[in-house]
């Protein structure tokens, strides 16, 4: 099975965010593969391994630094990559614009499925899967936690997370699948994998070369930090029971929630 995995490089979850203009200050940030995209990479590699056939192609929009995350995915076991290295396009790209370039890059490839994370943990928009499906003319299944392909590779049976439970759906391939946590446990790249990744082909393009000029449809006008939260009071008491009583009293009389 041939798969395409869309990958975004994002700040690590431990990053303290600082605002710079209508974006964030990027100094000192540790960049990683978006965790949800990492599940997507892992699933694509597992499907390839299971069938002992096929290819995994990474497609990523990002500036120069994104190559590190692309190489990480190649080291995990992906075969080749398209890096849309276009800083100017990337800087203003919203999910709409991002999907336009990803779709343009994917259109030239041969694939049975497109995998990507259900959202990137930087802008948290969760829109690219839907836009990609629309642009590629493919059905979209979001929040995937289990994925199985039929022997003839014509359909996939997929479990997706829904409110308060799960839904099992069947969909003809090719289709777009967005990964939710729980789909799998991503592997670490092995040392031989890292060595091999250095030689794997990465096709570098810009948005213009893909014939994409679509700009963003949403604009950030202002960026701010949430109001700082102050530490409140520590509840004192002789023992746990006394503290619990004081806490219950506070919840009753001050918070008025009981």
């Amino acid at each position: 099975m041939n798969t395409v995995v869309c990958l975004k490089q994002v700040p690590d979850t431990e990053t303290l965010i600082k605002v710079a203009g209508t974006s964030i200050a990027t100094e000192g940030i540790k960049w990683v593969i978006n965790p949800y995209d990492e599940f997507a990479v892992e699933e694509a590699i597992r499907q390839k391994e299971k069938m002992n056939a096929g290819k995994v192609t990474i497609v990523s929009l990002g500036p120069d630094r994104a190559i590190e995350s692309i190489r990480t995915a190649l080291a995990m076991g992906a075969d080749d990559a398209v890096h849309i290295n276009d800083g100017a396009y990337y800087d203003t790209a919203d999910p709409y614009a991002t999907a336009q370039v990803l779709a343009a890059a994917i259109k030239g490839l041969t694939y049975d499925a497109v995998f990507l994370g259900k959202q990137a943990i930087d802008d948290d928009a969760g829109q690219v899967p839907a836009f990609l499906g629309e642009l590629l003319g493919l059905p979209v299944v979001t929040q995937v936690i289990k994925f199985e392909v039929s022997a003839d590779k014509k359909t996939a049976t997929v479990t997706r997370e829904i409110e308060g439970g799960q839904m099992v759906v069947e969909v003809p391939l090719p289709a777009v699948f967005s990964a939710q946590k729980g789909l799998n446990e991503p592997r670490y790249a092995s040392l031989p994998g890292i060595m091999k990744a250095k030689k794997k082909p990465v096709d570098v393009k810009n948005a213009g070369a893909l014939g994409v000029s679509a700009g963003p449809m949403t604009v950030i006008k202002e960026m701010s930090l949430p109001p700082a939260r102050q530490a409140g009071k520590i509840i004192t008491g002789d023992d746990a029971k006394a503290k619990a009583a004081a806490l219950a009293k506070a919840l009753h009389e001050e918070v008025k929630i009981i």
Partner: peptide
């Protein structure tokens, strides 16, 4: 954005 580490005004 960033799970609430920052807020954006968006149009």
């Amino acid at each position: 954005m960033y799970a609430g580490k920052a807020y954006a005004l968006v149009e």
